[in-house]
């Protein structure tokens, strides 16, 4: 399959996996292994010193060997997201940041104004910003203008598992930004939806809940990995053109019993 390159780094896997919501740190680790992903997302939260639950998760993530993509999940303003990104850069020693600025509590819809403002400021500060955004073309263009080299449109709101809700907008993004790495981030619930995204020409898929909340997360991680590979291969192979009428696949010439009635 063709290269998958983000900010000058090339990855084997087009599957980016989240590390939240698993039944246990061990299952999370098994899911990461089964996914064969190269990039995992993670977050930062307030924690009291007496609560060390996060330590096991961090140890597993660190040992996975995956590239770390910290997020600014839950931030509701550019200022909050910038501060959390700076904290992430120090803790994880990476300039990569999955930028989230949330505009609405109900559907966790990105705030495009805060997102663009934060992206511009973080890029000035040397960050490599991977913005979680809607499927709006103009917002994507403004993020590119700000210096982002990757765009991560939602398929559906975070955690809903509803798949690609607005295919017209997503197709438009793909057609209008042919040279920009586009990663479907959030909203996917089934491997078939991930395959569909990849068949449409998206460069990668980022998800968390669909794997973590599966009955058997490692097996689901593998299923998504296979679907993403299959979808990418299909895109590269080139899908046939759909037609309205049937046409036989077996040759008509030489058909036996022809005119026998």
């Amino acid at each position: 399959m063709g290269n998958f390159t983000l900010y000058g780094e090339t990855f084997n896997s087009r599957f980016l996996l989240g590390t939240a919501l698993y039944p246990s740190p061990q299952i999370m680790r098994d899911a990461i292994t089964a996914s064969e992903c190269d990039i995992v997302t993670l977050g930062l939260r307030r924690q009291n010193p007496s609560e060390q639950d996060g330590a096991a998760i961090w140890d597993f993530i660190k040992d996975s060997g995956c590239k770390l993509l910290p997020n600014t999940a839950g931030c509701k303003s550019a200022k909050e997201a910038i501060t959390l990104a700076e904290m992430s850069r120090e803790i994880f020693d990476t300039e990569w940041i999955k930028l989230e600025v949330i505009g609405d509590d109900y559907n966790l819809q990105p705030d495009p104004y805060g997102l663009i403002e934060a992206a511009a400021e973080l890029i000035k500060k040397g960050f490599k910003v991977l913005p979680y955004t809607t499927d709006d073309l103009i917002v994507a263009q403004k993020l590119l203008d700000a210096g982002c080299e990757v765009i991560m449109p939602w398929g559906a709101p975070i955690g809903t598992g509803q798949g690609l809700m607005n295919k017209y907008n997503l197709r438009t993004l793909r057609e209008r930004l042919p040279d920009t790495p586009l990663i479907i981030d959030a909203g996917l619930g089934a491997p078939s939806q991930a395959a569909e995204a990849m068949e449409m020409g998206f460069d990668g898929v980022l998800l968390n809940t669909a794997v973590a909340k599966a009955q058997t997360p490692p097996q689901m991680a593998k299923a998504f990995a296979q679907a993403i590979d299959a979808g990418r291969n299909a895109f590269e192979a080139g899908l046939m053109v759909q037609k309205e009428t049937a046409s036989p696949s077996t040759p008509v010439i030489g058909q036996p019993f022809w005119h026998s009635k």
Binding site: G18, T19, L42, G43, R45, R46, G54, L84, M87, F92
Partner: peptide, 24 residues
């Protein structure tokens, strides 16, 4: 971190201390 030693805490300061957690 390089400024921890030289940062004096003042009344009403709101201090956030964060640590890694799983995230999506």
């Amino acid at each position: 971190r390089s400024l921890y030693d030289n940062t004096q805490l003042s009344a009403k300061d709101q201090i956030d201390v964060v640590t890694p957690v799983g995230g999506g």
